[in-house]
Computed example of a mutant assay.
Amino acid sequence: MNPVVTSTVDRCRKLGMRRTKALEQLLATLLEADRPMTLGELASSERLTEQCDKATVFRLLQRLAEKGIVRRLGLHERAAYFTLLVPGRHQDYLICTECGLIESVKAPCPVHELENEIREKTGFKNLYHELEFFGTCPACA
């Protein structure tokens, strides 16, 4: 198993979740994805179709989001997208308000220096941010 998946499973266990094959496969699928994925995409992925049903994937995603292991993205009226939160790895997103398309921002994050300054001035631990930009994608414009 991938070391990032193994360490993420360990984080889940420390947070009170049971280690199951479905959990491992869901985390591996999210880790290998080159973009955030919807519930439908995850439930129909090769790894998960034989492991569990869509309702199980949904429940796992909800618990992972509550525990801060997975980030839920998207507009509430549209399908939600999910991405794995990996310590030391950060990604910001562009979200189309028309079609719901989600893309990674391909530029350095402008908030990292501000985050470090806030951490130093306030003494907050485990400080992080999530940055999403909303607009109309070229296809919808």
Results as ranks from 00 to 15, higher is better:
residue 9 V to D: 01
residue 10 D to Q: 10
residue 12 C to G: 13
residue 14 K to Q: 13
residue 14 K to T: 12
residue 18 R to M: 10
residue 20 T to N: 09
residue 20 T to F: 10
residue 21 K to D: 02
residue 21 K to S: 13
residue 22 A to R: 08
residue 23 L to F: 05
residue 23 L to I: 04
residue 25 Q to N: 14
residue 25 Q to F: 05
residue 26 L to F: 09
residue 26 L to N: 04
residue 26 L to T: 05
residue 27 L to P: 01
residue 28 A to W: 09
residue 29 T to N: 09
residue 29 T to H: 06
residue 29 T to I: 01
residue 30 L to N: 08
residue 32 E to S: 08
residue 32 E to N: 10
residue 32 E to F: 02
residue 33 A to Q: 08
residue 33 A to H: 12
residue 33 A to S: 15
residue 33 A to C: 05
residue 37 M to L: 11
residue 39 L to H: 06
residue 40 G to K: 10
residue 40 G to I: 01
residue 41 E to L: 00
residue 41 E to F: 01
residue 43 A to R: 01
residue 44 S to T: 15
residue 44 S to K: 08
residue 45 S to P: 00
residue 46 E to M: 01
residue 47 R to L: 06
residue 49 T to I: 12
residue 53 D to W: 14
residue 53 D to V: 10
residue 53 D to M: 09
residue 54 K to D: 05
residue 54 K to L: 06
residue 55 A to V: 08
residue 56 T to Q: 15
residue 58 F to W: 00
residue 59 R to D: 03
residue 61 L to W: 06
residue 65 A to C: 11
residue 65 A to L: 11
residue 66 E to I: 14
residue 67 K to T: 02
residue 67 K to V: 01
residue 70 V to P: 02
residue 71 R to G: 14
residue 73 L to I: 05
residue 75 L to T: 11
residue 79 A to F: 01
residue 84 L to Q: 02
residue 84 L to S: 07
residue 85 L to H: 10
residue 88 G to E: 07
residue 89 R to G: 03
residue 90 H to G: 08
residue 91 Q to V: 07
residue 91 Q to G: 12
residue 92 D to H: 12
residue 94 L to S: 04
residue 95 I to N: 12
residue 95 I to E: 14
residue 96 C to M: 07
residue 96 C to V: 04
residue 97 T to A: 01
residue 99 C to M: 11
residue 103 E to F: 15
residue 103 E to H: 08
residue 104 S to T: 09
residue 106 K to L: 15
residue 107 A to L: 05
residue 108 P to M: 03
residue 109 C to K: 03
residue 110 P to T: 02
residue 111 V to T: 13
residue 112 H to G: 02
residue 112 H to P: 00
residue 114 L to M: 13
residue 114 L to E: 10
residue 116 N to A: 10
residue 116 N to S: 04
residue 116 N to L: 08
residue 117 E to D: 14
residue 117 E to N: 10
residue 120 E to F: 00
